[in-house]
């Protein structure tokens, strides 16, 4: 289950068959990419099912029940259905932009997984600027949503696209600053180093237990992350009661499925980052490291799902006010104080 040995083994195997560089490296990385892609797609399908079950049980109903045990393959059937559906392309669309928007969204959602450690050594590439890379690539999503909004040539979609641009750009700031607080603790931008810095001492080395900065950073991060993942109470870009479906109102079939899956991949991404930054990453006793990682990630996802099915939605101006007048000053103050404590060498 460790990616490096697998990668090296595959690389050596390809070398021995006489395929020289750079092809052996490209093929081995391609294999890795397909593995991560496949795993994540399955995880996203699982998350869709899980969310429906949780929503159902919160709302005093069962959720999917007909397909298999508790409807376990409901989302697979949904995916198959969506793939078979007619791809409706309205005549007045902006052809290129309309076509590429879901692709960009889909790819941007998966790019972050290059540096997310699923377990010990279970990482595609341990970049030394890992977290910076994540912040950079996840912002691509907003471009795709703007593209979708513009390319659809629909007023609701355009409003949704503009809303999502405003929202994601605003919440990027508190999110990045709260991540910076963790970087101050860890002294590294590498995801592996950050996770390793929280090892030992049962759970009390986790950065969330560095009061008060860790908990504040976590709370601001999870708030901003909810907004980044476009989920209630910050789901204004697709607010169906106002904008019907927002940016993806004109999309159907496969293209809609790409937006939909990307949304759940993003949900997994923000939770995985939260786990790595605040909950000690894959570290844990007895069980294999990747199981620990998944368990912790699902716990964070559960939290986000509970948010979604409990809260009403904020209004677009209230959302912006909350980001700029509350979250940004709070995260900056938190960062400066944490840096000062670190500089002064005080332990806490």
């Amino acid at each position: 289950m460790e990616l490096y040995p697998v990668f090296m083994w595959l690389h050596d195997l390809l070398e021995s068959t006489g395929i020289g560089e750079p092809w052996s490296t490209i093929i081995s990385y391609g294999f890795l990419a397909v593995t991560v892609f496949g795993t994540l797609s399955i995880l996203a399908l699982f998350l869709v099912w899980w969310e429906r079950k949780i929503a159902g049980h919160i709302q005093q109903r069962f959720g999917p029940m007909r397909t298999g045990w508790h409807g376990w393959y409901q989302t697979i059937m949904d995916a198959v259905k969506l793939l078979q559906k007619e791809d409706i392309r309205i005549a007045t669309r902006d052809k290129a932009v309309f076509f590429w928007a879901p692709v960009v969204c889909f790819v941007a959602a998966y790019l972050a997984y290059v540096v997310i450690p699923f377990g010990e050594n279970l990482i595609v590439a341990d970049l030394n600027v890992g977290i910076l890379y994540i912040i950079a690539v996840t912002t691509f999503t907003v471009i795709s949503l703007l593209m979708a909004g513009w390319g659809s040539n629909n007023k609701y979609a355009l409003l949704g696209g503009m809303r999502s641009a405003a929202q994601v750009v605003s919440y990027e700031v508190p999110m990045a600053v709260s991540i910076l607080t963790v970087i101050v603790f860890a002294g590294s931008l590498s995801m592996v180093d950050i996770a390793n810095a929280q090892q030992g001492n049962i759970i009390f080395n986790w950065f969330i237990f560095k009061p008060p900065f860790g908990i504040i950073a976590f709370l601001t991060y999870i708030t901003a992350a909810t907004a980044e993942a476009n989920r209630t109470p910050f789901d204004i870009p697709e607010a169906e009661q106002e904008l019907v479906a927002g940016y993806n109102v004109e999309y159907s079939g496969m293209k809609f499925a790409m937006f939909f899956l990307a949304e759940f991949v993003n949900l997994f991404t923000v939770s995985a980052i939260a786990v790595t930054l605040f909950f000690g990453g894959w570290h844990g006793p007895l069980l294999p490291s990747w199981i620990w990682f998944l368990l912790k990630t699902f716990a964070v996802i559960l939290l986000l799902m509970l948010f979604r099915w409990t809260f009403p939605r904020l209004r677009v101006d209230q959302l912006m006010e909350f980001a700029w007048k509350f979250l940004v000053p709070l995260t900056f103050a938190n960062l400066i104080l944490a840096g000062w404590f670190k500089y002064a060498g005080w332990h806490w």
């Binding site: 929503a55 919160i58 709302q59 109903r61 209630t232 009661q241 099915w309 409990t310 809260f311 009403p312």
Partner: peptide, 8 residues
């Protein structure tokens, strides 16, 4: 208003 649960 965006809260789906009270409906049920």
């Amino acid at each position: 208003i965006g809260a789906l649960t009270p409906f049920l």
